[in-house]
Design a protein around this nucleic acid. Structure first.
Lengths: 220, 220
DNA sequence: TAGATTGTTAATCGATTAACAATC
DNA sequence: TAGATTGTTAATCGATTAACAATC
């Protein structure tokens, strides 16, 4: 990993996708790939692919292309997927369980060290290798453990108050599935939002727009 | 809804967030808001807010601002959240169930008319107002119903083959939670991806980057 | 009328694309 | 060496921000 000054968010958000495609190519035992070929497979331009990789250093070889395995490893290291950041899951409903499974089987970079809920029926039950704990015990848990990331799978109101508490304990990184907009209230945090309903509403707009265009085309 | 020619994706993706904030303001019984005030609450600029709204027509009033309720309704109509597009859920694991709950309680614009899985233990069980069906019955279901949207909560390989089948039946709109990149293989579809692992990897990068910057600052 | 705030045009900034010399 | 493809600089495109006249 070389030159690394202020990579733009547009580039950063493409890295996981590169990583997915490269992992796939490794599985298919493809050894080398050119920026043009990778671009074609990913619906990007060759220029963009080369620009993106060159934010972090020259991983390619002129006249040859990129070694798939080496490139995959570089991106893994750029994303620092071996960090094992301590994370706690807040809310073990359907979504929380899906997220926990996800982290167990494919998410790298994080280690789930606690799962909390307020539901009496869930507290004490197992979740993967963990036992679901009472959310009221979060204070003492924070005292005893260093929490890097909190994963919020709870409704907006619950999120609002638990973030206040966790922020007080020094937690600054959040994977947020709730509707609560953390970064507005806490500017010195790092937030990744997964707003499923935003995605769904966007889809609704795009479908309606597409249907409208089809209708207009027919009428012309 | 007025002038409406080729709105950029950047604008479209901000609409659901406006909608969320405006709904909130309606609940708080706020009557009017200026672009500046809304921008402050959402971490945007006043210019951007006005530019965004003016893609669709002049909803404001000079010297006054915007009527919160009217603006919310406009955006609801722009997003066409009352469409009720027929959708089917493919995969009723934890994630699928979370998505189904979501659609039951807050997602507008869509109507869940079927839920499918391959797991013998799930088939026949209820999911909200539906009975989970055998995925093998998807063909006849497609014949008998007009499906607008398929929601994919299944692994990559399963997604690959079910998309091929659904595409054959004319389905062109997908809400995709799987790792399969539909738009590359089927360019004439509209896809909203929710790639949870991409979001998590991005978070991993950003945390590591933030920690690195802190360390560097200390060393200086 | 004076003050406030919009709608809209112009200026700036950033991201993507194109071009090409360097080099494997 | 000739062909291919990178790394990188320059050109283009699009999105955000600033400015201000219009007007409620």
């Amino acid at each position: 990993m070389a030159k690394d000054k202020n990579i733009s968010m547009s580039v950063i958000r493409r890295l996981p996708r590169y990583y997915r495609f490269l992992s796939d190519l490794v599985d298919k035992e493809v050894d080398r790939i050119s920026s043009g070929e990778l671009a074609k497979r990913m619906n990007l331009t060759a220029s963009q692919v080369r620009q993106d990789f060159n934010c972090f250093g020259g991983f390619g070889q002129q006249g040859y292309g990129y070694s798939v395995k080496a490139l995959k490893n570089e991106i893994e290291s750029i994303l620092s997927l071996k960090s094992g950041y301590n994370s706690v899951l807040i809310g073990v409903g359907n979504l929380g369980r899906a997220v926990a499974m996800h982290m167990e089987f494919e998410a790298r970079g994080f280690k789930l060290i606690g799962a909390f809920d307020q539901d009496r029926n869930l507290i004490g039950k197992p979740l993967n290798h963990l036992i679901i704990k009472d959310i009221d015990g979060i204070d003492s848990f924070c005292d005893e453990n260093k929490i890097d990331v909190a994963i919020l799978c709870i409704p907006k109101e619950a999120a609002e108050s638990i973030v206040e508490k966790l922020y007080g304990f020094g937690v600054r990184y959040f994977w947020n599935f709730s509707h609560f907009d953390i970064s507005v209230a806490y500017p010195d945090t790092i937030i990744e939002n997964v707003h499923m309903s935003d995605s769904l509403m966007t889809l609704c707009y795009r479908i309606t727009d597409a249907k409208r265009n089809i209708t207009e085309t027919i009428q012309k």
